[in-house]
Design a protein around this nucleic acid. Structure first.
Lengths: 343, 343
DNA sequence: CGCTGGCACTCCAGGTCTGAGAGTGCCAGC
DNA sequence: GCTGGCACTCTCAGACCTGGAGTGCCAGCG
């Protein structure tokens, strides 16, 4: 990639960081630029002109200061951004918010998203990719005593899914017990993903004795379980976008809000390479036109049995990347722990 | 309340409806044209002056048209707003969106909120007041076979809550069976609300045999169940606010977003009289300063066993009340049905 | 007596103009 | 290669003007 000499790197970093701070074009004799370099504004100007030549900076108009291009941010993020840990106070804040009585994956995701938005002051998205990759552990059918029963499926991660069902005439406790055991035996270890109607039909074929319950079990497993296992997406702190000067005009922000409120669009925007580290998409690197003025900082998290998800922050391309990266990384880490703990 | 003669009512209605449509102050000429009044603008002007005297209209400045005051909207809503049914296409749209595989109360609330926001084109809030008013139905502890067990609580509405627990040494299936039955017997019929630590302690005192499991059960019932039973709030379509001219300046809308993203503030804003009908709060009738430029159209819904919630739309005081009322009423109705059906 | 058209008045929205300020590019000199 | 100087450009904010929309008031009319 681009090779920049030390001074150009310093100038680029200064322009990016000062612009992130002030939201204004950065002039050549700005204090921030001159701080570390003992050279005159005229020298800086020629450096800036060359950085512009390279496509890293640009000009709103002839006599304005410089603003980073998307490519400029890209170089900054890849080569100039030294990572920092999240400040202790923020770590504490995240930890406190996330340890409130963990509930369903959706609740955990919601808490994480709130914590992230609150420390980063950007809209946050947490996708808990459900349990489609989890495995079926057991089915238990428990009589409730009034001709109805409770059917409960446990999955690998220990989450439960179930509903009440009406029992066929003449069913007794030991029937239920045997049916539960048979279905558990047949399906144990299957990934929820693989529980297609055909697969299920085959698995249940053996259990001819309980043929008449087939429909009940089938709907429980397919509709109910698969339905609840779909990815949970939580968005929090969208309001922070309104604090950013680039989004002060509504027409600039409305498209972005549409993405944040549409699960399908979000999923698409976050379908970057599933990496271990923090992934950043800048401005026009995003496919959708609504996101071309935005950056997305995201990180995947993964827990033992294949469930996992994504943590992300949305902001203007003029985003506080350092802080955003630290926050996303920390929350992704906590989230892995929290989800592991809820086994 | 205020008695207005027919012509004043007509003029007030014309001003309100035209202002809702155009978002501009309404001049005497427009009002006359709109209502096909066979009087001259000068006459309308004197009527308007009197309506202003009464506090129903106001003037942005000397030579502008009239705009309704909060009181003006109040009179309009109470006395001049004839209700209409939701258009068939919108009813169909709501029905289609809400019949997607019903899941947890939170999911149902989310679908309802999405449907409502989409037909009304305003931010919607659906509060499913959890099950704190539901009653405890049964506890079942089911062995999983590896020294762990599944503890499941069923409530009156048929929803399940549970988690895996580690079994004490030497527990056998019949112990579990007996413990389950004992706890069920003790707590059956209690409202989840009433399951305070003290109440629980007392209920479990009898079961001395299982003393050593007390903590496990206690944490399951109190932390887990009560935690998951807390009200579910879903907000959808906040982006629609940005389409409203009164919210084009960010400083006007940022406070409102804070309310929409804060469950406590939302709960406060929606804590109006729990009525059967549609409830409207206009502008300064709202307590919180963030909502003084907004109106809230809400309706309660209730299902068999005391669970229920609230459906609401947020908008500018210049809201399309007729449509909002129709949408809120219809969605509240569907929601009652959907929740009853998920028994 | 209520309604009406006419009229003077007010105020805003939007346009042009201007000067100050910030920043640039270029260049000659060190 | 760096620097200060200089001419140039462009924006932004304020001042000023004007057209238009709307009002309030009033005298006259049915």
């Amino acid at each position: 990639m681009l090779q920049l000499d030390t001074r150009k790197r310093t100038v680029l970093r200064a322009v990016v960081e000062e612009h992130i701070r002030s939201a204004e074009p950065v002039g050549s004799h700005h204090a921030a630029v001159r701080e570390h370099l003992r050279v005159s504004p005229a020298t800086i100007r020629s450096e800036m002109a060359e950085l512009e030549e390279l496509g890293l900076l640009t000009h709103p108009h002839t006599s304005a200061g410089r603003v980073p291009t998307d490519l400029g941010y890209r170089v900054y993020v890849d080569a100039l951004l030294e990572s920092e840990p999240l400040p202790a106070a923020d770590r504490e804040s995240v930890r406190r918010r996330m340890t409130t009585t963990a509930g369903s994956p959706g609740d955990t995701a919601e808490l994480a998203a709130q914590a992230l938005a609150s420390v980063a002051r950007y809209p946050s998205v947490v996708v808990a990719s459900g349990g489609r990759r989890q495995f079926f552990r057991s089915l238990h059918i428990v009589p409730l005593g009034d001709g109805r029963a409770l059917a409960v499926i446990a999955t690998g991660s220990g989450t439960l899914h179930g509903k009440t069902m009406r029992l066929p005439e003449g069913a007794n406790a030991s029937d239920l017990e045997r049916l539960s055991r048979a279905v558990t035996h047949q399906l144990q270890g299957c990934r929820v993903d693989d529980l297609s109607p055909a697969r299920l039909e085959e698995a249940l074929r053996e259990i001819t004795r309980f043929r008449r319950w087939f429909e009940e079990i089938r709907s429980l497993v397919l509709a109910d379980l698969a339905g609840r296992m779909r990815p949970q997406i939580r968005v929090e702190g969208a309001r922070h976008l309104l604090d950013e000067p680039e989004f002060s005009r509504p027409e600039r922000v409305t498209g972005l809000f549409e993405v944040l409120e549409d699960e399908a669009l979000l999923a698409e925007a976050l379908s970057g390479p599933p990496t271990e580290g923090v992934w950043i998409t800048i401005g026009t690197e995003n496919r959708r036109s609504e996101l071309q003025r935005c950056s997305v900082v995201s990180a995947a998290f993964r827990i033992g049995d294949g469930a996992g998800g994504t943590v992300a922050l949305f902001g203007p391309t003029r985003m506080r990347y350092r802080r955003a990266v630290a926050a996303v990384r920390y929350v992704a880490g906590r989230l892995s722990q929290a989800m592991r703990a809820s086994f």
